[in-house]
Amino acid sequence: MDTSKKTIIVFSGDFDRVFAAFVIANGAAAMGDDVTMFFTFWGLNALRKPEKIKVDGKTGLQKAFAAMMPRGTDKLKLSHMNFGGAGPRMFKHVMKQKNVMSLDELIESAREQGIKFVACTMSMDVMGISPEELIDGVECVGVASYLGEADEANVNLFV
């Protein structure tokens, strides 16, 4: 098996974009590749726990940012045709009909396959998201850690 490495930067928090990133990540892992997904800015919202978690030490603006952004996969918007939240519901309905895996299933599968999730501490800080608000098993890193991984990868995507 010709193992190589893939890195994916998940910058967007749009449901469809995050979904595509996880399909590619899962496919690559199934083909024997090591995969690292680097979540930054809006992409962090995909990794947020759905429940509200009280964290001390946030500034007013950080609190406001965190409150305004979607918490978790179920709250993500579509990049097109969002229709005030009706779009994602229609999308999910059709995906279920077509037996497409759900975003949560893809994330679960990514974990099972050993895909590494890393989150950018700088954007977490700006957006008022603390590590305990993210799902378990996410490593919080800086840009150099990502670049170190990207150096070893033969494919790098920015989503």
């Binding site: 399909v23 497409v100 895996m101």
Partner: peptide, 8 residues
């Protein structure tokens, strides 16, 4: 099952 289900 749809993509990427079969290869998984």
């Amino acid at each position: 099952v749809s993509c990427p289900g079969p290869i998984l």
